[in-house]
Design a protein around this nucleic acid. Structure first.
Lengths: 107, 107
DNA sequence: CATTCATATAAATGGATGTTCATGTAACCA
DNA sequence: TGGTTACATGAACATCCATTTATATGAATG
């Protein structure tokens, strides 16, 4: 099979993991400190199951770390650099407009 | 239908556009200056058609800009901040290992 | 004007990914 | 022990996305 994983494959996987609206919102939330699943679900107003799947995806990419306390499970950013990265992205996107060609409005 | 596009939708779309191994390699190449399609195809060693699709994706996200000169068409990064972003990503990924759980090796 | 070169596009196909529904599990409590 | 809370998991389904094959466009060249 010779599945040769390149540096770009890994970086791309990482970016795709971050590149999902719900997961991006989770990252922004966690930038403010760790949260348990219940809090994240409430914040997102989405199905608990869906959130759980997203959290797993983030965990599989080592973007978040997990801590258990009694029945509750807390998620936190694995690295403070991730919060900076999100800021950097927002920064760049001010100069690289993307509304173009998108369905719907962008105010 | 009220398709409400959030900031995170746009940012996610941008990240997914960058989050593809081939397109990431294109970005890294263009970080060294503009290139025509033929050069990009040769560099990537991929089908011309496939490369063309990727270039279109990058263009649709305003990540690259296009310039025509005779029969040749040159692509370049739309913003120098994009090259910085790639560096930032590589930087963070040094601290957030991703080889974990991936199929194949990662040397 | 026919041909070639450089690039784009359209349709078909297969694989990845997000959501939901249903169920599983582990901790806590009465 | 039985029930509840908190979260994870698996299967099914739908949608998105990358690749390929084939064809089209448009500029140059003879």
């Amino acid at each position: 099979m010779d599945v040769h994983v390149t540096i770009e494959d890994n970086q791309a996987r990482f970016l795709r993991c971050i590149g999902e609206a719900t997961r991006l919102r989770i990252l922004k939330l966690l930038a403010g400190g760790e949260r348990c699943v219940g809090e994240i679900v409430e914040f997102l107003d989405k199905e608990q199951s869906s959130v759980s799947h997203h959290l797993r995806a983030l965990k599989d990419c080592n973007i978040v770390v997990v801590r258990q306390e009694a029945q509750k499970i807390y998620y936190a950013l694995a690295d403070p650099g991730l919060a900076e990265l999100v800021l950097k992205i927002e920064d760049i996107m001010k100069e690289v407009p993307l509304c173009h060609n998108l369905a719907g409005d962008c105010e």
